[in-house]
Structure formats: structure tokens, C-alpha cells
Amino acid sequence: MSADPYVLRVNGNDHQVPDAHLGESLLWVLRERLGLPGSKNACEEGECGSCSVQIDGELVCSCLVLAAAAVGREVTTIEGLAPDGELADVQRAFVEAGAVQCGFCTPGLLMAVDTLLDELSDDGSVPDDLTVREAISGNLCRCTGYGRILEAVSIAADIRRGESRGDLA
């Protein structure tokens, strides 16, 4: 059963989605129909977070979003974090901290951390350890043991607050 074509707004651009089938998740449509494979697919049941995207600024698992129901929403994927090819602050921080090993979890984690920093930047506060751990609790990483990810978050928070840390100079 194919759906009527619909339009998804992803990373600021409208994309026609023709020939879609009913029941396709946003994750599937992003990867297989729109050529945006940055969001990863590991579980398709909301457990791993590797498919995390922002919809209207809120972090969700794209595998649990019916693509055809995301019409009219603003979807931001990992490809939208650094549209001009220059690394975003969270990406620089992950590189800096060595928080990427196999990299499979990284796009989802970057979206989670970006969302956290967006929320915090409203009041300019520094995220405490518990807040950070809770913010990334829906993202599984099987390589790093999370230590370097936590370090990356604190670097990213500093960058976003516009501080330059001496040890990074």
C-alpha cells in the first residue's frame, strides 16, 4: 500500500517523499529515501538512541516516529548539525575528547548533547554530572565506557558558553 506523496522538512529543506509505504519510520525514510544515513539503525525499538533526531527542537527516536505523521514538523538530523561542512561545537568536543571509537552511537549522542546544551543555554547554566548522565541515558555506547563522552560534554558545554579552556588551546 503506498501512501500519497508527502513532504518532510529536514534540516531546513523540504523533501518530497514519493512512493513511500505505510508504516515506514522516519529513520527508514531518512536513510533509505532521502539519502541521509547519518542517523543509525540498531534496534528499531527505542532502546539504543542511535537514531536520535530533533523534531521541533525535541529529542526523539526517529525509529519510533511514523514518517508520514512528521509532515509539518521541523526535523533536524546529524547532517543538519554542521550543514556547511565545518564541525559543530559538539562534534569538535567529541573529537577533542576522543569520545568516538567505532562511531556507531556518535550521531545519536551528538543530537542528545546538542539538545541538552540548547536547553541549558536558555539559562546559561553549567550541566552537573547527573543532568548530563540523564540527558544521554537513552543513548547506548558499547565501546567507550562513557568516560570520554562525559568529558566531551563538558568541553562542548564550555565551547557553547563561549569559554576557551586553556588546556585546549
Binding site: G46, G49, L59, V60, L64, V65, A112, T115, A135
Partner: peptide, 9 residues
């Protein structure tokens, strides 16, 4: 419940 992603949806 779940994770931030699940609680948002």
C-alpha cells in the same frame, strides 16, 4: 519512564 527521547514522545 524510558529515556528523554521516550519521555518527549
Amino acid at each position: 519512564v524510558g529515556s528523554p527521547q521516550i519521555r518527549n514522545a
